[in-house]
């Protein structure tokens, strides 16, 4: 009996050791990014490279440079505007679609759902050429708000799919009672379905926020004006602007861009895990 306990304890120690080791290796790139953002730009090409800056060389000059530029605030607000509009619109239209697809047996349901699944299995970037042509025709090129309909359309399949699964699990009796009371479709949607599905909508919205906040290929293709850039294109533009990349600026801006994302992630951790696992375990 004693030896068994010993083996168990040894197993536990091994688990914690491996997890801790893995986590340290895993976080090195992020720590290096932060440490690079905290040293003077000139020191970035020093050889040998240092993982941690010299204590006396620590500086916030990269951050003050970025934060003293009005450009950064413009980029930040652009990203916030596009991301927040995307998640609001996507939540509205996807939850409505999910409600109809999940709770009513219409003839078109199968067809619509088929298209939703179909678009989920095609890599999004393969459509960039016809989408660019479409954006040109609709005069959406180089328009900040022009990003929104594309982003919303991209996240509709995933959002509808997830919210639909949740709506299907709402017990039929709850709605049955309202039909008997003579409630309309709209009333049932807004008074019953929406409040009950709000956890699913919240979790989907977090994912949608990340998608829009970090989207690069499309925004980089259609946005030209510096004043209309979102954060990812602004960061990418910073890099490679000069012959020698000013890594201190690049990483200071990166850290500032990551702060809202990490905050949202840590605060909404529960919704995150729910959203991620909803589709996978059943499958």
């Amino acid at each position: 009996m004693k030896s068994l306990n010993g083996a168990k304890i040894r197993g536990m120690i091994l688990r914690y050791f491996l997890l801790a080791l893995g986590t340290v290796i895993f976080t090195l790139p992020m720590i290096y990014m932060i440490s690079t953002s905290l040293r003077p730009n000139g020191a970035l090409y020093e050889y040998p490279p240092r993982f941690f800056p010299k204590w006396e060389a620590l500086t916030l000059e990269n951050y003050s440079y970025i934060l003293n530029q009005s450009k950064f605030y413009v980029n930040f607000l652009n990203s916030a505007f596009v991301s927040l509009s995307t998640i609001t619109l996507a939540a509205a239209v996807s939850s409505a679609m999910a409600f109809v697809l999940g709770k009513f047996k219409l003839k078109v349901n199968k067809l619509i759902f088929g298209f939703i699944i179909l678009t989920m299995i095609i890599p999004g970037t393969t459509m960039i050429v016809p989408q660019f042509e479409l954006a040109t025709k609709l005069n959406l090129v180089n328009q900040l708000w022009g990003l929104i309909p594309f982003y919303v359309a991209w996240v509709i399949p995933f959002s509808t799919f997830m919210i639909k699964g949740f709506m299907e699990n709402i017990p039929g009796e709850i709605m049955e009672a309202s039909w008997i009371d003579g409630a309309s479709v709209w009333t049932v949607y807004t008074r019953i379905a929406l409040p009950l599905a709000s956890p699913a909508i919240a979790s989907v919205s977090i994912f949608n926020f990340l998608t829009a906040w970090e989207e690069y290929p499309w925004a980089n293709t259609v946005i030209n004006d510096t004043s209309k850039r979102t954060l990812p294109i602004a960061i990418a533009g910073f890099f490679g602007q000069h012959q020698f990349t000013q890594w201190g600026y690049v990483f200071a801006m990166s850290v500032l861009t990551l702060i809202p994302v990490v905050l949202i992630f840590i605060l909404c951790q529960k919704f995150f895990v729910q959203g991620l696992t909803a589709g996978s375990v059943k499958g």
């Binding site: 409505a96 109809v100 009513f104 016809p130 989408q131 509709i156």
Partner: peptide, 23 residues
């Protein structure tokens, strides 16, 4: 029901389904 379906469906059709066909 149609009013609930349409906005999402139109966006999805115009910006995702149409580009696939156009592609």
């Amino acid at each position: 029901l149609i009013a609930l379906l349409l906005p999402g469906l139109l966006l999805f059709a115009a910006f995702t389904v149409y580009p696939i066909i156009r592609l």
